[in-house]
Design a binder for these strands. Structure first.
Length: 638
RNA sequence: GCCGGCGUAGCUCAGUCGGUAGAGCGCGGGCUUCGUAAGCCUGAGGUCGCGGGUUCAAGUCCCGCCGCCGGCUCCA
């Protein structure tokens, strides 16, 4: 009998090949293990060992064992469904563990599962957990397995069996009479499961194929203990609380109306004021860095989009054409062809490179109706778009400067944590080796110089060039992709872009697309969620609310608001007849960062009583102190 | 686009078994002049998403469409 060597908790031992870890642990007196890491790979206790190595037993509560437990819960759920709806009526698809729990794709004959039923299913699951069925692994031959699942009417499982590579064992796990095709790993018994909750149902295509059958996906969340589960559930409540669609309504920032069209955003006055501040800032920052501004139309001739290649590669994302004077026109999905046309209005010398053109360009893209989502996924949006045309020699500096610019802008909006992604040459790429090498090197150097964590997505670039993506981490730990810096070797060719070099000859320039915030709409959604609606002082539509205590203080309040407006702040006096408490409540709910209360005391002494949304009451200040304080808030962008 | 859920006043929502539409907030008017998160009274406001059907009668039941929400798929 072949032997294999194991090292368990420092102890070395030899066992016959095919022994299970369950047997090994029993021998060693290791109790209550739910799984193990064998050379770093997650394994269960019931699978015969085929190789030796270092073994780390895992117990309930171990982070590393979560996938085992979640996967087993998926089986428990499948069993619960079979018990509830009848074994012959329930056909199983796949049921893996996920980041937070598990799901199972199922088909229940003659009915659809609704959210209301989740409780019932959950109860049945708890029952099965309580019954503490041992989970037994069996290896079958392909034929045996096929016969078994044919008998069970599990046609999806039959398909899966066919996909198991030759030479790999076909295994099933059985618990309390319920058998499922599965390669594991699984808990020793159902009773070892942790805390869980079924959270949602949705449709999911079998094998992700939209033309194939659609199954019902039932989601569950699972952690070892109730506390952690509740913490995660709370997190989702927090996500809900920060939902920009709710905040956007409350703060009167934007609306999306059926009558106007799905995915088309109307900016309300308060949102428009915020957006004006943001746009002014962007234009300023671009001008400071040598960008030039442009405005381009919303539509262009089909000819243009043909030349750019959009009609060839991007048509399904474009609004359908419109006919005008015998010509077809398309609404623009991107700004590049216009910017390139601007570049080409006259011959360009190497002396004016890098040529950097910036536009807050509004583009329209056809998005499937099902993916539209508040401001985060829309059909019409404004990009903070720029195209940089430069010589090969300038590529390094340009990229480094652009990445620094992007990060500085994101920091100004209150983001502090970034993760960079470098995507390199894919299989079917255009462009020369030289172009790819030069570009990728520039991107990599810039990413390294930034000092932030980065990942390389080998082969993940577009066919026309490599890129850097910047993701930000928001206040509750979610990652959002914002900035993109993308080389394009395609359009300079298609549009025959050139510049005259020092040698008096024509050369092909490098071109880079880049957006810092991406889309103003999407960015606003993310920003609102990041700050939970409480925008930094410099971005708030109303920065200061002046609240008179009684009617006799109205004049003083009005004069104060005028004074602050003259100082460049966005200030409003609340002259409604409400009581102070109600006015404060209103200011709080609309998330005005600074509130000034003025009554007899303040009016007499020419002061204000300051209350901020973030820090509460700051006591009274003279007007000089107040303006100094506000200027500091403005300057620090806090 | 697909699956499931949902659509009632500006907003959040209630509306039983099919019997003719309601609350709170907000908005208008009046009173109150008030010191750090809701003062009191009063009024206006609805083609119950749209269209069709069943019925003596439809917010309620059925069908189609539109939109929203959660996913799936898509995102050169």
């Amino acid at each position: 009998m072949e032997k294999i060597k194991l090292v368990v908790e420092g102890k070395e031992l030899e066992v016959p090949k095919g022994t299970t870890l369950g047997e090994v642990f029993k021998e060693l007196g290791i109790k209550d293990a739910v799984g193990a890491l064998l050379e770093g790979e997650l394994v269960d206790l019931q699978t015969p060992l085929r190789r030796g190595g270092k073994v780390k037993p895992l117990f309930r509560g171990d982070e590393e064992a979560l996938p085992i437990m979640r996967h087993s819960l998926a089986h428990v759920m499948a069993q619960a469904l079979k018990e509830l709806y009848g074994p012959a009526k329930v056909r199983l698809g796949v049921g893996p563990d996920t980041e937070e729990g598990f799901f199972y794709d199922v088909e229940v004959e003659g009915r659809t599962i609704t959210e209301e039923e989740l409780k019932k299913i959950e109860e049945k699951m708890r029952e099965i957990v309580k019954r503490d069925y041992p989970i037994v692994r069996k290896e079958l031959t392909r034929e045996e397995a096929k016969e078994l699942f044919k008998k069970l009417g599990e046609r999806y499982k039959l398909e899966l069996i066919d996909e198991i590579p030759e030479g790999e064992p076909v295994s099933v796990y059985e618990q309390g009479g319920f058998v499922d095709l599965c390669k594991g790993p699984h808990l020793p018994s159902t009773g070892k499961a942790g805390a869980f909750k079924l959270t949602a149902v949705s449709g999911a295509y079998w094998k992700g194929d939209a033309s194939g059958p659609q199954l019902t996906r039932i989601y569950g969340m699972a952690y070892w203990d109730e506390e952690k589960l509740n913490e995660r559930l709370k997190f989702y409540e927090e996500v809900k609380r920060r939902d920009h669609r709710r905040l956007g309504k409350e703060l009167e920032f934007f609306t999306i109306e059926n009558e106007v069209g799905p995915g088309l955003v109307l900016w309300l006055p308060r949102g428009a004021l915020y957006r004006k501040v943001l746009e002014d800032y962007l234009r300023e920052e671009h001008l400071k860095r040598g960008y030039q501004l442009a405005y381009t139309p919303h539509v262009g001739r089909a000819e243009l989009w043909k030349r750019s290649g959009h009609l060839e590669h991007y048509k399904e994302n474009m609004f359908p054409p419109m006919q005008l004077d015998e010509e077809e026109y398309y609404v623009k999905p991107m700004n590049c062809p216009f910017h390139i046309t601007i570049y080409k209005t006259r011959p360009r010398s190497y002396r004016e490179l890098p040529f950097k053109l910036f536009e807050l360009g509004t583009v329209y893209r056809y998005e499937l109706s099902g993916v539209l989502h508040g401001l985060l996924r829309v059909r019409g949006f404004t990009q903070d778009d720029a195209h940089i045309v430069c010589t090969p020699e300038q590529v390094n500096d340009v990229i480094r400067e652009t990445l620094e610019f992007a990060l500085q802008v994101l920091r100004d909006f209150g983001f502090e944590e970034f993760k960079l992604y470098l995507s390199t040459r894919p299989e079917d790429a255009i462009g020369s080796d030289e172009q790819w090498e030069l570009s990728q090197k520039a991107l990599e150097e810039a990413v390294k110089a930034s000092g932030y964590e980065y990942e390389v997505d080998e082969g993940g670039g577009a066919f026309y060039g490599p890129k850097i993506d910047v993701k930000v981490k928001d206040a509750i730990g979610r990652l959002w992709q914002l900035s993109t810096i993308q080389f394009d070797f395609n359009l300079p060719e298609r549009f025959d872009m050139t510049y005259v070099g020092p040698d008096n000859k024509l050369h092909r320039p490098y071109m880079i697309h880049r957006a810092l915030l991406g889309s103003i709409e999407r960015f606003t959604g993310i920003l609102l969620e990041h700050h939970a609606g409480l925008l930094p002082f410099w971005l708030s539509p109303t920065q200061v609310a002046v609240l008179p205590v009684a009617d006799r203080h109205h004049d003083y309040a009005r004069r104060l608001a005028e004074l602050l407006t003259a100082e460049g702040f966005r200030a409003e006096a609340d002259l409604s007849g409400e009581r102070l408490g109600a006015k404060i409540r209103k200011a709080e709910l609309t998330k005005v960062p600074v509130v000034l209360v003025v009554g007899d005391r303040e009016q007499e002494s020419g002061t204000v009583s300051v209350r901020t949304k973030k820090e509460g009451s700051l006591g009274s200040m003279s007007l000089e102190e107040l303006i100094k304080y506000l200027n500091e808030l403005q300057r620090s962008r806090r």
